[in-house]
Structures are given as C-alpha cells and as structure tokens.
Design a protein around this nucleic acid. Structure first.
Lengths: 230, 230
DNA sequence: TAGTGGTCTAGACCACGCC
DNA sequence: GCGTGGTCTAGACCACTAG
C-alpha cells in the first residue's frame, strides 16, 4: 500500500523547498545525483522532478539543472499589475480585521464544506497608490493553522505564511465572478457613488492538505482590470 | 534535426482527434498497441499520450485506456452551466451579425497584433431558456480561415469549426475582466435598466498556428455567474 | 483471465551550458 | 571536456477493469 517512490521523493523535495533548504533560484540536485543518493534509477528521480515541474515549483534548463521558481501566483485572478505596477506606485494592504475566530459566513456562491471546525476570518483593503482597488475577506478552518491568529504575515502575504509556517500549498481553485452594484459600505470604502459597477470574485482554494480556503474579493475595476492567463 | 519521435506521434494523434478518426469518448489505441504499431517502446508511446493528457485532449483510466475528452473548454471562463444546465433549460445562440469582413475594432484591453490582414467579425447573443445572458463579439484574421464566411458552424460552435475545418487549436489565452454599467444597447438587448452592473471579459486566444483571436463578452451575471477552475 | 495504464530498473546516445 | 536534462530502448511487476 506504500506510495510510489517518486511520490515520496517529490514530497520530500517539496518540503525542502518550503523549509528553505533549496532557496528560490537555487539548483536542485541533478537527476543523476538524486538517483544515486536514493538508490533509484534516473527515470524515477526524473518523474519526481517532473511532478514538481508540473506544479510550478521548479523550471528545468537543459545543460544546467532544475531551478526553484520564485514565488508563485496567489490565485488565478490577480489585480492587473498588483505586482507589475509595484515599481511605479506603491501597493499597500490595510488590515481592517486581523485574523479572528468567527462564525462561518456561508453566503458564498458555493457551499462551505468545513462546517465542523472553528472558522478564522480576516478582512483587508488593498490599494495601489492611494486608491483602494480590492476589498478581501478570507475565511478558513483554524484546525490546520494553529497559532496563525498571533502570527504576522510573511512578507504581508497570507499564502506565503501558509507555505512557510504550515507547509500548506494551493493545489487548485474554483471561482465565481459576478458584477454587483456598490452598496453603502463599498461606496464608503472605495470613495465611489452607490450603484457603481464592481467585480465580485468568490474563490474556493483547494489546499494540498485536503481542506479549503474561501475568499471574497470586491474589486474596483474602473482603472485596474482583473486579468488571468493560461 | 528531426523532432522527437514522441512529438510526431503526439501530433499525429492530435490530428486524428481533430479529423474525427477518434471521436469524443472513444478509446485511443493502447500504449502497447501504439508501441508495436510504430516500432517504438511503450515508454515513448506513453510520452506521446502524456503530452495529450497534459493538454487536456484525453484522460486515462487504469485498466481501461485513454479516452478522448468531450468538449474542451472554449476559454478559461465560461458561463456557469452554459453546458451543465443544458439538460434543464435550452441554451440558444442567436447570430446577430454573421461572420463578415470588417475593420479591426481595437478598443480591447490589449493590443491587436494582426494589423496586416483582413478582419472577420461576428456577433452573437447567447441565452439560457428565454433570457439572454451573454453578448459576444469575436474578430480574427481571415488569412488562416479562408472560406469561413460561407460556412455554417459545426454544432453551432466557432471553436469546433476551427478545429474540424482548419485544424486550429487554442494553446492559451489572456483575459481582462471589468465591471461596467449597461448602456442603451445592452439595456435593450438584455431587457434590463440602464446602469445595471454587467461583466465585460476581453479575451485574447492564442492559437497553435501562431495568430490570435479576440473576443469581447458582455455577461448578465444576475442569475448565472461566470466561473473557472484550475 | 486477458489487457490496460502505473511504476520501476539498467542501460544508452544526444544537445546544450559552463568552464 | 564534463555534467546537465531530453530522448529512447528492452525488459519487469503491479493494480485495476472488463468480459
């Protein structure tokens, strides 16, 4: 019943990347090295690396080796330029409600599966320059993230915090998008008139530990659109 | 300089899927069969199939074989249930402007690369039941699609027509999403009041022949949201 | 039971990057 | 020249599906 050899090697390498043993931009051991170190053939070592490649943890270069990629995308949709624009204008993130225990908010476009355990929720407002562009509410089970309430986010990133401190990765996501009219709260938060069209994105992130995270993003897309590529 | 054996086998199988030799839901020859037919080892045949798998053309089932997938997604985003709901309510598509020669409409969120050649454009209104949910304008170069103007769409699908009649596949896409207010035309088309929030999705489809297709979708998301999964 | 895909071994030659 | 990943061969055993 034991899992495949290449799977356990893949998992170990992934741990080593999370733990920082192999930093971003660093070279992983070569296929030949991995093969002899673990007493397996090169084909099997290669299969482990190809799994990492498929999930975007490394890129390979013929003649050079396997290189750990820099930070991966946080979701499928990201505010256009929230990273690219960073050079010109400053991207800031104001924590309106830090992570706290709460009741599950179940008004999402899809069902919440985690009814059993305690819910942790936080709320942030993200701005480019001085203009707010995205209101984010994220909730998740506190079961797999003990202590996160008193933890500062790594580089201000929730997902990076999950990676570094809990070895939790995102394996997939499902999202629903809808156009809504700004209500009183949104009108105040974004400094726009009531009824202004806004984008609402509900995201269900699937983690590699089996449970899910739920985010609702409200975006002002008048100046910055939301983009995605495949 | 010749390309890899598994690549040419992969290309041939892809052609065979396009041509209908292997229909949707049909079984591809087994790895052993492909190996002996082409005088290669099973590993190489497998590599060709894995490439098809990675691109979503087939799924594999242990003990059964490799099955050609039904309907490949038309984009990254698709109206929720435009396919799933089909059982209950009828999905219809009204051609407002059939494919015709036109000037490039370059008001998209991204640049149009195909300035050189003639532009073909069509406009459709898609409905679920009797309610319109999506207005679509698509434009592309007529250079790689000679004769398409007088061609009925295969199964009413533009992408299927490209596949079957021109062997053109979609290798990727880039899209920008924005919330807009319904103007006079939209208000009339969708039977809603002016100013109603709607979703505007600009998509740049990259084809495997090198050129691009451009679509603008305007969606009424009051009852059917737009979704995507990864 | 026969056939399928999933995994693995033990080799081999090649094009490419770096020194 | 040497090590890297890319490709390929010729076998093997396994778990799963179907008749």
């Amino acid at each position: 019943m034991g899992e495949a050899v290449y799977i356990s090697l893949y998992k170990q390498l992934k741990q080593d990347i999370f733990s920082g043993k192999y930093a971003e931009g660093a070279l992983l051991p070569s296929e030949n090295a991995l093969a002899s170190q673990h007493s397996i053939t090169r084909a099997t070592a290669r299969q482990a690396l190809d799994t990492l490649l498929k999930e975007g943890y490394i890129i390979k270069h013929k003649g050079k080796g396997s290189i750990v990629t820099r930070r991966r995308s946080l979701g499928i949709l990201s505010i256009k330029g929230l990273t690219e624009v960073a050079g010109n204008k400053k991207v800031t993130s104001e924590m309106l409600q830090p992570p706290h225990y709460a009741e599950w908010y179940d008004n999402f476009s899809f069902a919440i599966d985690e009814g059993k355990s305690h819910c942790i929720r936080f709320k942030r407002l993200r701005s480019i320059g001085q203009y707010p562009v995205m209101l984010e509410v994220t909730q998740f089970s506190g079961e797999h993230t003990k202590g996160i309430i008193d933890m500062p986010f790594v580089n201000g990133s929730f997902f990076e915090t999950l990676n570094k401190n809990f070895h939790i990765g995102i394996s997939g996501a499902h999202q629903n998008v809808k156009a809504i009219a700004a209500d009183a709260e949104l009108s105040e938060r974004f400094g726009i008139s009531k009824g202004t069209p806004m984008l609402r994105i509900d995201i269900k992130f699937k983690t590699d530990k089996g449970f899910c995270l739920y985010s609702r993003l409200i975006c002002d897309t008048r100046y910055y659109e939301v983009e995605s590529t495949t």
